[in-house]
Structures are given as C-alpha cells and as structure tokens.
Design a protein around this nucleic acid. Structure first.
Lengths: 227, 227
DNA sequence: TGTACATCAGTGAACGCGCGTTCACTGATGTAC
DNA sequence: TGTACATCAGTGAACGCGCGTTCACTGATGTAC
C-alpha cells in the first residue's frame, strides 16, 4: 500500500507523518517538528525530566542520532519544549482574559484582568501539570524567545508580559498607586506560583487540591488587597 | 598505625568514622548515620536528584550494597534526607523568631512572628538551596515525621506548624479576624514559597536575587495586608 | 527533457557511563554456657 | 575467665537498564547543465 503510493501521496504522507504511521520515504519530511511534538508530549505526561532524546526519536520513528540533525543536544530540545510550554501558559491566560464581561467600570475590568491572569496560571498548572513544570523548571539557562521558538500567546505577550500588562491596567484605572507598580509582578507571580507548585506536586497536593478553586480565589483576594 | 591500634582506639575510630578516615574495622560503627550524613551533604550540594545511593556509600567508604542493611531503597534514604532538611528549615525559622525584640505590644509581636517565619524560610532557601529544594521537592510520598526522623526544629514544631502558630498569634493579638484564620497558612506559604522557588532556581534568579531582601520584605508586607 | 552530481537528512552500530539492585559469601562481634 | 556459636553488618561480583552522544556510512532529493 504505502510502497505503491504515488509521489503526490508520498508528499502528503511526509507532511502528515506521525508516530503511528510508518514512514514510507527515506527522508522524514519534518523531523524537527516531529521531535518537538514528541518532546512536548513527553513533557506533558511527565514534566521536564521525561523529555528524553531517545524516546522522542522513537516516537518520531527515527534512529536516535537523527535528532542531532535538528537539535545540538538534548538540552536544546528541552529548551524548545519549554518555549512551547510557556506559550501554552500565555494562551491559558488569554483564554481567561477573553472571558471577562464587558460593560464594567474600568476599575473592575482592571481587577478582573489581574484575576484572570492568575486564574489562567493556576488552571493551567492543574490541567497541564507536566507542561507547567517544564515551563518553569529549575534551569540554568534563561529561556529566550526567538522567531522560531515563541514563548508568547496569541496576543504576542508571554506570561510575564501578560501579568505586567494587567498590573499596568490596575494603575491606569487608578486602583493601584503608581509608586507601588515597580516590581509588583514579582509579588503577584510569587503568590500564584507558590500555590501552583505546592498543589501540583508539593506537600499541599492532598490537602488543598480539592478546594483549589476556593483557595486560589482567596489567594488572589490577598494579592489584590496586599498590592 | 591503624592496624596496630588497641581495641579501645578502634572503638573511638568506629564512633567517629568519616569519609576521609579509612575504616580500620570490619564493621563500620554507625553506617546508617554516615549514609544519612552523606545524603544530606549530597542534597545540600545538588538538591534531591543528587542524593545517589552509590555516592553515599562511596563517601561512607563502604560497598554500594551495604546501604541496603539500613535503607530499603534509594527512595527511603531520600525521605530520611528530606526529613532532615525539613528540620533544618524549622530551625532557620526558629532562629529568626528568636531575634524578635521583646517589650513590644502584642500586636507588633504577633506581626513580627509571621514575618520571622517567612524571612527564615526565604533566607534558608537562599543559603541552603539544595536542602530547600530537597525539603519541598516534588514527591509522591508524603513525608512523615517519625521518632527517628524528626521534621521539627528545637521547638518541636515543623515548618508548617511554626507558620500555623504564628498565624494563631495574629488572631490572639486581635490583628487578624478569627474567621480569616482557617486556611490562611496556605496563602502565606504560597506567597513565600513561590518567591523562593522563582529566585533560587527559576526565571527570577538573575532579576530579583540581588534585591531579594527588599522584595522579600515587600512580599511579606503584601501577605500581612492581604490576609 | 534528460542526466550527472553535490548535498545532507537519515542509518546502523557502537561507546562509555553511572545508576539501583540482587546474589552468595565472610568474618567481627556479643552472648550463652 | 575461656570457649563455642549464632548473628548479621559488610564484601565482591555481577546484572540489566537506558541514557546521551560519536562514528563512518548511504541513498533520496533538488539543481545545474
């Protein structure tokens, strides 16, 4: 079947090659993408340590060393996966932001923006724990966005920038005094990040998880009042 | 020299055996303790993944499998190290609590108590990063204190209990309304834990680290106001 | 339109590594007589 | 006080594992003529 496919069919096969359909051509088509996708899947299921070069090549249906045509090392692949995970976090935040009802006074909108960013972060951590851990995993390398490896969501802002923008709105709406603005993202981020870490893998997993929505909203209350 | 030592000298050697002094007797003396100490040292230097059975036995000057006389598996050794790390966190908090000046009004004392707990946590994370990460590392197992593996400091309270006690004082001093007390430790812990994680290994390492004391205090301001 | 050729994405085999863990053992120690 | 003996903490060797990475290669592809 596959071996008698026409050149045109082969092209289609190459373009849509997945782990399940055996390759029919010598060349893979888009191995870089396939490895990256496999890496993302591994990270989703098991966090950053689960991103293993050999397993990614296995899933792409390719010899282990083929990966080196596209990534200089396992570490470089992992960084690409992290960038993708960061982008997914940004999109989760944007989804929450999109849900904000219009027609409210500016102050309420601004407050809702910060809450949306925090809520998106927490929900992502719970729903996509592996990717979340990968995005913010301990790492010596500072993850840099590049044109090929965007860390931003649809808005063009990455998670950190989305938080910053939401806080700017808070100031613009007169909810937060401008002198408190500098560095405020560190405080807000810390609170939400800490809860996420403690709940998804840490000591609060069993205690807080069932009440995470409630505790999350209380945490955001605290941040709002405290900032 | 060592081979001609008297039985009494041998006993001393056994009791004080370290990685640097070669064993003179067949039996080790206190291998369990030596392995635990080596594990703690490994965790201190490299976090939880650095706690490697074979390396611990190497440092204890013993064959790799000798460890199985004292720990059922690598995981069990790691848990013992974690308990010790938690205890060290508690002691860091207690050190800050001890520094609180007396003679203040109860409300101020209570507030200072919460700050001390948070400050101790943050300072420990920065000074003993490896142990900090080990204490709160992702883990499926809930770390349980046992008589042989205390997680508490000198006060007899573990880090979580120290925070709880400080918050209780806040209520007792009339600073915090009693109805806000339940679950408040989750919020306070989240904030401090998040900052610690983001700074010691996360994306804020380079940005915030130089200003960590200031940012830490601002974070505690936020918690105090927001609770 | 056909052919020669350079490119380079993938192959196949192998490497060294360090890990956790199991096995059958040995011999120092403390204890019972 | 001396001796036989059971205990059990440590030894020595080996296992299988999966990893990242390197090597010399091959053959499908697109391009220049």
């Amino acid at each position: 079947m596959l071996s008698t496919s026409t050149p045109a069919q082969k092209l289609v096969l190459k373009a849509h090659n997945t782990a399940t359909s055996p390759r029919s051509t010598y060349r893979h088509g888009d191995l870089r993408r396939a490895l990256l996708d496999a890496g993302i899947e591994l990270a989703r299921a098991g966090g950053p340590e689960a991103v293993v070069l050999r397993e990614a090549t296995r899933r792409a249906g390719v010899a282990p060393n083929a990966a080196y045509r596209h990534f200089a090392s396992r570490e470089v692949l992992l960084q690409a996966v992290r960038a993708s995970a960061l982008s997914a976090v940004a999109r989760a935040m944007e989804a929450e932001l999109d849900g904000i009802a219009g027609g409210l006074p500016p102050a309420d909108i601004a407050r809702a923006g910060v809450r949306a960013v925090g809520t998106g972060y927490l929900r992502f951590a719970l729903k996509e724990t592996g990717l979340f851990l990968t995005a913010f995993a301990p790492s010596d390398v500072l993850i840099q966005a590049t044109p090929e490896l965007p860390t931003a969501g649809n808005s063009g802002l990455n998670p950190f920038e989305l938080l910053g923008a939401a806080l700017d709105e808070l100031v613009a709406a007169g909810v937060m005094p401008p002198e408190r603005r500098p560095g405020a993202e560190f405080l807000a981020w810390s609170a939400v990040h800490g809860l996420a870490m403690l709940v998804v893998r840490g000591p609060l997993a069993s205690v807080v998880r069932p009440r995470i929505e409630e505790v999350g909203q209380r945490l955001l209350d605290m941040v709002e009042k405290g900032l």
